[in-house]
Design a protein around this nucleic acid. Sequence first.
DNA 1: TGCGGAACAC
DNA 2: GTGTTCCGCA
Length: 609
Amino acid sequence: MKTPGEPGFAFPEWAYKPESSPGSRQIQLWHFILELLRKEEYHEVIAWQGDYGEFVIKDPDEVARLWGARKCKPQMNYDKLSRALRYYYNKRILHKTKGKRFTYKFNFNKLVLVNYPFIDMGSGRVPQSAPPIPSGGSHFRFPPSTPSEVLSPSEELRSPGVFSGVARRMARGSVSDCSDGTSTNSELEETVGGGDERGLGPDRSFRGLLPPRMTHESLFRMYGAASHLARPTPRVHSEPLSPFPVSPLPGPGGHLGPALSPALSMTPTSHLPYTPSPSMSSPMLGSHFSFNAEDMKRYLQAHNQSVYNYHLSPRAFLHYPNILIPQPHRAAPPPAHDKPPAHHLLHAPPMHLSHSLAGSLGAGPLGAGPLGAGLEDGPHGQQHPSPFKFKLQPPPLGRKQRDGGSAVAAASSSSSAHSQSSSSGGSGMLSDSASAMATPKIKVEPISDNESEEVEVTDISEEDEQMNHHGNEEEEDDEGDEEEDDDEDVFKTPATPPLSAGIQPFPLMSLKSEPGPGSAPISPGGTLCIPLKLRFKRRWSEDQKMEADGEREEAEDKKVRSAAQEDGEAARGGAGVAESLGVAPPTQRRSSSELQRATAQLSLENSGC
DNA sequence: TGCGGAACAC
DNA sequence: GTGTTCCGCA
């Protein structure tokens, strides 16, 4: 098992390999696409459109030409390029937006989140349409931290600074290789600008980031800009929208920021077993972020949404806990609208987060489920905390699969539901159970293909959400997404189902309901907050355990579930809060010191709440 | 217009 | 492993 924290932590390799993958000759098509998308110059040729990472190739021939130039393939044409794009379907890097000509959509799960969190899809300048966040409706941009930002995911991730460098490389390098490419190159380069490569760590660093290990610093670096954002930073391009990039947490939140994106990345990769959260937390905790709660929340929301939107794995959500958004109340759902706007990211209603969190909390270890649901809200506003199911994504399906997939998807969804219901009776339980379920199953390995498991998880959540939401986010996309999901396959983990039932839309509810108290060192202050923390701890601990012991996981899950159920009951009773939870099983106990610390901090902070 | 298999190059 | 090229199919 790899833990996120571990160096070996695995993300799909392709995630790291941006330009540098050998086979790719330094630049991969999708990177190239992103590059073009972020450049205003190419907006006429290719531009973001619609939601989430959806983009349209306005001038296929030109895009092909540019790509060919970069790759020194004069013969390149759209037919060929499109073939390459189609291969991404399987990798889930992209999918075709059905019904829209020349329109594709990035699966940020894997890509963006992982790789490009910082990237601003629409370059900062050009808001083009940054890939809008689905739920939010608004488009979010990736935060371009800087011009350089772009980059290849891998490097980017690795080192914050790096990514800029990478971008450069991409720009330059990619194009530069060929004389032909020059045109492209030049442009790209311009955007890229800089030259600082910080070539920091290689992929590994990236990996490291995710996990607890990720150093805050690194994160900050990565998000540096973002961090700034939080504060009045200059850079922030408008990114407010972009979930990841920017906000991540600005300065104080740096942790978050990093965490988030990393988390995302992690999730996407899915590699992270639940650990992420813990890991995240630990770091975060250590640094304790000082962030504005609101901003954080918003950010988180956005993040969650994005995650959700992008089909990130539920795990991504886990991170949120760290974030901690004390706010229980979820207000209205930050509709897409809200989020969309630049500020929104920051401002975005925490709802989702809290809400999601709550759900997750209540749900169980996996925040994901709830989170996902929460994320989704965007459009609707609240969404139900639909239980998301974890699906393990199987390798991308080809069309064939898709075909079958539609049916399958339905089935899966249904099945997932079943599993959930069956598995956990309780609402909250689901998440937990799911998480538990998931965890064990989940492999941390990097896998692209293997992703199935890891990614799957993420996807699953997505699917679940989608399933639940269905039209919400992507209408058009939905199909695609669903397909993807379907394709991905889903393993459903039992968790989700209950959530819907159990999970309460309102974060508060969930919070209260959640058990927590017993276990964790709760801080006096906000009981609610504390519970959450506890919850997180539990989750984390659980995750960890799970990772550690697959078997135990189940047991724990059960316990948790029971606890959750209890919690729910308690909540109902009114008392709530965790006490009932005291049950919090061993997992809590186990919760790593980090977690505890984190929770403690959180609690403290929250108490303020 | 889009998909995906297959062979092949790097 | 990634992408290119070619091709047949819908």
